[in-house]
Nucleic acid binder design. Structure first.
Lengths: 224, 224
DNA sequence: ACTTTTATTAATGTATACAATACCAGAACT
DNA sequence: AGTTCTGGTATTGTATACATTAATAAAAGT
């Protein structure tokens, strides 16, 4: 028995969930948009069953909200929500660094992170591309901690933030500072100056969001 | 139009999920136990569809792990996992107190919490009962923060910890100190001494885990 | 005109049936 | 004995059909 081929992404539902995730992150689907099972079933040429599963997977990642007997909508986050998400993300990353300090991080991980940061230096103007790489950087720190719990918690924050950062970046002003800080954090990690790494990381996170007065859209198609 | 009756717990799946949650928390179901859709379908006299949904709800709360094409099992947590869970819980509660400090907490909330703590004083020997009340206390702090995000994150931690606390309480030794601290935290909140509340809370949480007999792979030595 | 009622339609919830896959025990082979 | 086939069974994955509920529109009453 040969192993699964490339297309078998562990069942349809995962594949569909990934596709919808992409649509949310790229902004094709916006907060409040209603997701209709039948529509997607037709679009993907399947029955509603795997679509439902996909919606659940998305709900776990915090991208979709399921309202019993009403349906599934793309979850919206208020300004307050985003502040809390960022705060919690920072806490998790701080904790991750504490955990990293207790381990020997293999050279390969550090190299991987450095490659990532170098790639970010070269991005020129594509917000989505930058947001994706940035996400990978933060995720990389989480993974270095080798803590399933932290990683699990983080996954609930990461994607919603990714879908928002694209919009709310103060692109021009902060990008250069942000890039430099990534390098600094990595250097501290390499030199095992974990307290310093933490300090820079905390500052780094505190500067990410500049609220701009956008409020949460209401959900269309529902009678609230 | 009269509102839904008491039995309509917003669809079967929620009800089933609650029931299974109870079985996990009370220890009837143990980590690693496999959950078979068909079995539960028969037990509840339904088809497999709502059972599946229930499993997903449990997965969101971190009580069950879904492995594609294999099934659902009661999720187990290692000692390291528990340390991380507790650490994150502490962080979230700390953050919650910061948020509380920014609000006017209504008197009714404080009274509610005080009633809870008083009830805890009276519990005599029933670990599960105490663990449940303790859970409500911690949850109460989260709710006072009025942050959906914090509450959402917390729900992923709370139930797994609840299912573990019952087993590993160092009942006699620490219970009195723990009780006192609850009162102290509440008093600080009432007097708007939020920094003090936070400090006590952090200490309260840090004492929770005492890995003493490292030989034991289980969750021994975990209390609060 | 405005609200309430009623019918129609759309969408989710649940049940049943079948398909694909994983699991397991026993046979065949080395 | 141990390993690899092989078949049968258990269990999840998907499809289809129907039931129930929510959203929409039209009709009736005030």
């Amino acid at each position: 028995m040969v192993d699964n081929n490339i297309f078998d992404n562990n069942s349809l539902s995962r594949l569909i969930a990934e596709k919808i995730t992409e649509e949310i992150i790229t902004g094709k689907l916006k907060a409040g948009d209603k997701l209709i099972e039948a529509n997607y079933a037709e679009e993907f040429g399947t029955s509603r069953a795997p679509i439902r599963e996909a919606f659940y997977l998305l709900a776990i990642d915090g991208l979709v909200e399921r309202i019993p007997r009403k349906g599934s909508v793309v979850k919206g986050y208020s300004e307050r929500d985003i502040i809390d998400l960022l705060e919690i993300r920072m806490m998790l990353e701080s904790l991750a660094i504490e955990r990293i300090a207790e381990l020997d991080t293999p050279e390969s991980s550090l190299i991987h992170m450095e490659q990532l940061v170098n790639k970010m230096d070269l991005v020129d103007g594509d917000r989505l591309e930058y947001a994706m790489l940035n996400q990978k950087f933060h995720l990389g720190i989480i993974e270095m901690s080798k803590s399933d719990i932290i990683a699990n918690m983080y996954s609930r924050l990461g994607l919603p933030l990714l879908s928002l950062q694209r919009l709310s970046f103060e692109w021009v002003e902060n990008i250069n500072k942000s890039l430099k800080e990534h390098h600094i954090i990595l250097n501290h990690l390499r030199k095992k100056q974990f307290d310093d790494a933490k300090k820079v990381l905390i500052k780094h996170n505190q500067k990410v969001f500049n609220p701009r007065g956008k409020s949460q859209p209401s959900i269309k198609g529902f009678n609230n």
